[in-house]
Computed example of a mutant assay.
Amino acid sequence: MTSTRPASAYVHGDGAVVIVPGRVAAHLDRLLNLNRLRIEVRGQDPETDNVLVALRLAALAWRSAGGLPDRTSPDPMPPWITTGQAAELLAVDPRHVRRLITTGRLTARQLPSGAWLIDRETVEHYRAARHHRAA
């Protein structure tokens, strides 16, 4: 998922501040389990504590404002979807979804039957990044 913005667009001031969009915070939270990291390093450095909390809040805000709900709260939508459901969400052919899986752009697991289950959040991240590139 590439952005149309250069990396320098996220660096502000004298270069000591980086702005992290809520969608990216949610993606990092999901990939790196920032809540676990926050607990592990709590108290070592107050600024690090606050930045990790801010990333978590940005991720939660993105999810509640149109992204995906927080996985720690009851979620009426299943976290795993079929290739057909992913294809509908992305407005593409199911074969395209399978290519996205095999190239590592979508997180999925293959069932013994050969069918794929795709992580809904990675589909949402892919869709948001694709929309951002088109804008």
Score class of each variant (00 low, 15 high):
T2I: 10
T4N: 11
T4I: 12
R5W: 09
R5H: 12
S8R: 13
S8I: 11
V11T: 08
H12W: 10
G13Y: 06
D14E: 06
D14Y: 07
G15Y: 03
A16H: 08
V18Q: 07
V20T: 09
V20A: 01
P21D: 04
G22Q: 03
G22D: 04
G22S: 03
R23N: 05
R23Q: 11
H27D: 14
L28V: 06
L28W: 11
D29A: 13
D29C: 08
R30E: 10
L32C: 12
N33G: 13
N35Y: 08
R36P: 00
R36E: 10
L37Y: 06
I39Q: 12
E40Q: 12
E40F: 05
E40K: 09
V41T: 12
R42E: 07
R42Y: 06
G43M: 03
E47G: 03
V51M: 09
L55P: 02
L55M: 14
L55V: 03
R56E: 09
A58I: 00
A58K: 06
A58N: 04
A58M: 02
A59P: 02
A59V: 02
L60G: 05
L60Q: 09
L60I: 11
A61S: 12
W62V: 01
W62I: 00
R63C: 08
R63I: 05
R63M: 08
S64N: 07
L68E: 14
L68D: 12
L68T: 12
P69R: 02
D70K: 00
R71Y: 02
S73P: 00
P74M: 01
P74F: 04
P74K: 00
D75A: 04
P78C: 05
P78K: 14
P78Y: 05
P79E: 15
I81M: 14
T82A: 13
T82S: 15
T82Q: 04
T82I: 11
T82G: 13
T83Q: 10
G84R: 12
Q85G: 07
A87Q: 02
E88G: 11
L89W: 02
L89K: 11
A91N: 10
V92I: 15
D93R: 14
D93N: 15
R95T: 12
V97G: 10
R98W: 03
R98S: 15
R99S: 09
R99I: 01
L100K: 03
I101S: 05
L106C: 09
L106D: 06
A108Q: 05
R109V: 15
R109Y: 08
L111W: 01
L111S: 10
P112E: 05
A115S: 12
R120K: 08
E121L: 13
E121F: 12
T122A: 03
T122M: 04
V123R: 12
V123T: 07
V123M: 09
V123C: 10
H125T: 07
Y126W: 14
Y126D: 01
Y126H: 15
R127A: 15
A129N: 05
A129I: 02
R130S: 14
H131F: 11
R133F: 06
R133H: 11
